[in-house]
Each structure stands twice: as C-alpha cells, then as structure tokens.
C-alpha cells in the first residue's frame, strides 16, 4: 500500500462514520421519544397495510388521528396483492386497507381478518373528456364511436379490471373500442393525464380524479344502474397485536372526520344510488 493510501482510507472511514451519524440523527428525530416501543411490537402504535391508491386520504386521516388520540399510526404502502402476501406470511399488523373489496374477501377466506370488512369509500368509474365535451360523449357506448381517440388503463390496474366489467354490462363493441385506443397506460392517473394533455379525447377514470385538471377536462358521470362500482374496505386483522388500537383507528377512519378528509380529496364516501 502506498504511504498516502492508508491516510486516505482513514479519511474515507471517517466520512462513512459521519454519514452513519447523520443517518442516526434522522433516526432519533423520527422516533417520538426515547424508549418508545416500535410498531410491530406490542405497543400503543397501530400498524396499517394500506393500498397505494388510497394513500393520500389515509395518510391525512392517520395524521389527524394521531394528533387527537396520541396513538401513533405506522402505515406501509404497496399494491393490495403484495400487502396481502405480507399479512399472510408475517401475521403481524393491525389493519388492512386494500384497494378493492375482492382483496378483503380473499383475506377473509384465508381467515386473516377479525370481523367483517367495513366499507371505507367507493371507486366510481366515470368518463373523462376534454373541457366542454367537444365530442359530445354522453354514455359508455359512445366510446366505441368511430374516430374517437380513446385512452384506457391497462388490465393490470384496478380501473382496468373494472372497466372490462363496465363494457360488458353496457354491451359495448370491444373491437370498436380497440380500434379507437391510442394508449393503454399502467395507471389511472396517466389516463387522466392523456385527456388533460389532449393526446386522447376520452378515457375512463375514478371519480376521485375528477378534479385532476379542471381547466382542461371534465367528467361525464355514468348512471349507477349502468355503472360498476368499486369498493374500498378497511379490515381489522386477526393477528393484531393492538386490537384496541385497530378498532379505534377503524372507527376514526369511518367516522365523519375520516369522511370529511375523503370528500375533500374527491373520494366518494356514500354508496352511489
């Protein structure tokens, strides 16, 4: 080794130590206080598995819940299927909020839930069109009209799954839809973006996104009897280490306070009639 190299090595080790110390400081900040128990351990904190699609309202509601009750909420986000896998393997955690009721049913079949899933909010499909609806789209069947530039989310997304049922329910010619298709992005937000930017004339989104681009686009509601409504439920988990905390958080989530947050973020809280 060159004589200078060991000195430089020492400098690098020092730098690494400084970085660790910095990361360690962040750790102290993040913890509410010395000796506070950690999430998965039996403690006052509530551990929540939350679908990424409802991240914004759940994050906000959890913040308010903590401010009011002093109970910490620890939320891990992913897609509903992955969360179900995590619950199944670890049997830890107190609350599960999947993006679609189907996942709650699967969890119930696997006996992972304690009590029935409770309705949290609804995902209502709507047609998203350019501002002023220049193509005169009134109903789902209009999307098959020749010459329309259509954007539909990919099947792998929740909206992609539900819109297939929607087209079947409305007996829309799927071949004609395919001919109109200009893009099939992976997420519902990209569908809204395509309409906003004018890359497409119309697409299917959730009503929660209706305020996405008020200056460039607007929604055309689908009548409930012709629509297929998605439901988001919140469930208490059978393996909960903090069942009391889970119940309190669920109650808060579904209370008027939780509903107010949902509404403020354009989520539908009452079953559409």
């Amino acid at each position: 080794m060159k004589p200078g190299a060991s000195g430089r090595f020492r400098a690098v080790v020092l730098a690494a130590a400084a970085l660790l110390a910095a990361a360690g400081c962040g750790r102290d900040e993040a913890r509410p206080g010395p000796g506070a128990p950690d999430g998965a351990r039996p403690s006052g904190a509530v551990f929540v598995y939350c679908a990424a699609g409802v991240k914004e309202p759940v994050e906000e509601i959890a913040k308010r819940f903590t401010a009011e009750t002093g109970t910490r909420v620890e939320i891990t986000y992913a897609n509903s299927g992955q969360l179900l896998g995590q619950i199944e393997t670890t049997r830890t955690g107190d609350v599960y909020i999947p993006g679609d009721v189907g996942f709650a049913e699967k969890a119930a079949e696997k006996k992972l839930l304690s009590g029935a899933p409770r309705p949290f909010c609804f995902f209502v499909p709507a047609i998203y069109v350019r501002k002023g609806n220049p193509r005169g789209i009134r109903e789902v069947a209009d999307l098959a009209r020749p010459g329309l530039k259509l954007v539909l989310a990919d099947r792998s997304s929740a909206v992609g799954q539900i819109q297939e049922k929607l087209f079947r329910k409305n007996a829309v010619d799927e071949e004609a839809l395919k001919r109109n298709l200009v893009a099939s992005p992976a997420t519902v937000t990209d569908v809204a973006l395509a309409v906003k930017l004018g890359t497409a004339d119309a697409g299917i989104i959730w009503d929660a996104l209706s305020g996405f681009a008020p200056a460039e686009a607007e929604t055309v509601a689908i009548p409930t009897e012709k629509n297929v409504i998605g439901q988001v439920t919140a469930c208490a988990l059978a393996g909960a280490r903090n069942p009391a905390g889970a119940a309190a958080f669920l109650d808060y989530l579904l209370s008027d306070k939780g509903r107010a947050v949902l509404s403020s973020k354009h989520f539908t809280v009452d079953a559409p009639r």
Binding site: A30, A52, K55, E74, T187, T189, D190
Partner: peptide, 17 residues
C-alpha cells in the same frame, strides 16, 4: 419515518401518479 427509503418513496409516488 422508519423504513421508507428514497427509492421506495419514488415507487409510491409513481403508483399514485
């Protein structure tokens, strides 16, 4: 505040658009 590293955050930001 505990286990969310920056790459995880970017993934979550993509899933919400």
């Amino acid at each position: 505040g505990r286990t969310r590293v920056l790459p995880t955050r970017t993934f979550l930001e993509i899933t919400v658009g």
